[in-house]
Amino acid sequence: MTAPKVLGGFVVNGERHQTAFQPHRTLLEVLREDLDLTGTKHGCELGECGACTVLVDGTPVLSCLVLALEAQGKDVTTIEGLADGPDLHPLQDFFAELGASQCGYCSAGFMLAAKKLLEDNPDPTRDEIRRALSGNICRCTGYIKIFEAVELAARRLRGEDATPSREALHGQ
């Protein structure tokens, strides 16, 4: 049985897209399978891991539990839209610098959740970062490098000096 497709339109990373899909398709599936934006990952498809986090109208949500139809007419930001052309977003830059992205599978979700945090709160404490990222699971890093990368990105976005500590890169 194949349900008839419907035509959906979204703005993804600033670009208008129109594509046809079946009503039961999630935003995750349409982004990855129809729009080839495979930077958005999946680790459970049940809202239990955070790997599929995207921004819908600026708010981080789990694309595995959003129908593509529900995103119609909305502004969707994926990891592919985080960098400004060839220039990495400060979050990306510091995730790369510190090794906050080991296998990289969860990174998109973390960075998009962090982007919203830094918009709402440009100078978050470590505890606020923990809370904001508490819907994303990482199995490689132990989170510490992620926290540090978000702190450094926040500093740079505030226009302050953002140099990783010696301990972060070398240990004590």
């Binding site: 495979t38 930077g39 990891i79 592919e80 990495l88 610098e97 992205s101 990289g104 990174s107």
Partner: peptide
């Protein structure tokens, strides 16, 4: 690293 942080 760049590839991993840009979703590529």
């Amino acid at each position: 690293a760049r590839s991993r942080v840009t979703g590529q």
